[in-house]
Amino acid sequence: MTESAPSAPRAVVIGASAGAVEALLHVLPQLPRGYPLPVLVVVHVPPQRRNVLASLFAARCPLDVREPDDKEPAAPGTILFAPPDYHMLVEADRTISLSVEGPVQFSRPSIDVLFESAADAYGPGLIGAVLTGANHDGAEGLAAVAAAGGMAIVQDPAQAAYPVMPEAALALTPRAERLTLDGLVRRLLAAGDPSQAGEISR
């Protein structure tokens, strides 16, 4: 396996399902105003629940939080939640595109869909994290992140409210890093701090 040259992080993608809200409440509010990376999040939510997550997190996060409209730029310092009933993808020009094609892994939005497109768009500059969940979405996506040279992270299954999803991701990407939620926060903060760039790129 070739070691790719250290590459500055350019975006973060996070996927979570059952237990997501609690886990993300531990992580996202700790990202400070001025955080220099876009943070793109897929949580499995039922359709028709428009803006529920975004408003929940907007009230608790220093960063801007919203559900994007199609073609919205994936701007630094913004947390974008995939809108319910849409897949969220990133284009090569770092804008968001949405899709209502069928569910993937029984889910729309699907973590795999976001992660695979983000891996194409950001390559080695991507950090991908699969957190708690009770299904297998995100496993293929995280493998794509790793294959494109990005940093693959899973929430330590022993610490996850629902270990099935991080375990499935680990099974496909055994070299993904297992972190606690606190460890993930430290990793994300380091990724946003240029003076520590050397520490986060392996």
């Binding site: 990133v90 284009e91 595109s97 899709s99 094609e101 497109s117 194409d120």
Partner: peptide, 9 residues
Amino acid sequence: YAQASLKRR
């Protein structure tokens, strides 16, 4: 067409 989802399909 937007590339990301087109590629997927």
